[in-house]
Design a binder for these strands. Structure first.
Lengths: 141, 141
DNA sequence: ATGCTTGCAAAACCTTTGCAAAGTT
DNA sequence: AACTTTGCAAAGGTTTTGCAAGCAT
């Protein structure tokens, strides 16, 4: 019940086994609102081998249950994708929060540029880096 | 003359020493049109220590002579930036070519989204993944 | 019962770092 | 001469892998 039923279903439907470690990972990411590193996730799941966490996240990425958030410094975090849909990220360099957003006109620009270049678009990513509203509130406006 | 004079200048002006290894790296990237990995670059410069290649590329990134191109699979390549300006990438998954482009309306969308979210924008990246015009020409249309 | 999955530990990778020698200004 | 930079090799950190044991179906 607290086990992210939809994602669990998606695992099973796809032919993967719903094991306790996988359930634990799904559970953990269902209860996180901030994007996480493998290390953070692994620390929260001390009974689960780190290799399994890596393997599970890789699997969840393939199933599009989790998405990769590339950071400005080259690091990587992961995040449950709230929608299967494409979205973009606002990444706060101060508190690390990541906000998803959608913007049809941004997507339109992206598609237009691809078309202009004769490019067949498979996917895209757009990450915005800066300071989020609450961090700005605390510091200089 | 084949030594990317402008970049060399930029190095010196900024107070860094223009050494033979750095010149060799600048030369190598001036003569490459495809984005490269450190390994590829290092292989082309067998007389230069790999650590130096890493250090030099890091330096060139800071000077914005080179920019990082994040790949879809999480890998990283580097590329000489043709302009100091912000730009985005079209990355071909078939041949690996990377094309830079600029689009004010794309940037405008990005800024608008930041503003809407109360976000103070420091930087952003947008990468488009797919198949470039020439690869499409060869395969299925 | 079958065969996918796990956990451990080792291996593989990639990047950074310490330090003495060499190079630049 | 003073101070940077280099190269090597070792260290660091992260992700992957091999394999026997454990599970889900």
């Amino acid at each position: 019940m607290s086990t992210a039923p939809d994602s669990a279903d998606r695992l099973e439907v796809t032919g993967y086994r719903l094991t306790a470690p996988r359930r634990a990972v799904l559970d953990a990411i269902a209860h996180t609102n901030r994007p996480f590193t493998i290390e953070e996730l692994s620390d929260r799941l001390p009974n689960i081998g780190r290799a399994t966490v890596f393997r599970t996240i890789k699997l969840l990425q393939e199933l599009e249950i989790v998405c990769r958030v590339p950071l400005e410094d080259g690091g990587v975090r992961y995040e449950r994708s709230r929608s299967g849909r494409h979205h973009h990220h606002l990444i706060c360099s101060e508190c690390g929060s990541v906000t998803e957003f959608n913007d049809p006109s941004l997507d339109a620009s992206i598609e237009e540029n691809a078309t202009l270049a004769g490019f067949e678009l498979d996917g895209h990513s757009a990450e915005l880096y800066g300071r989020c509203a609450s961090c700005r509130g605390g510091g200089a406006l």
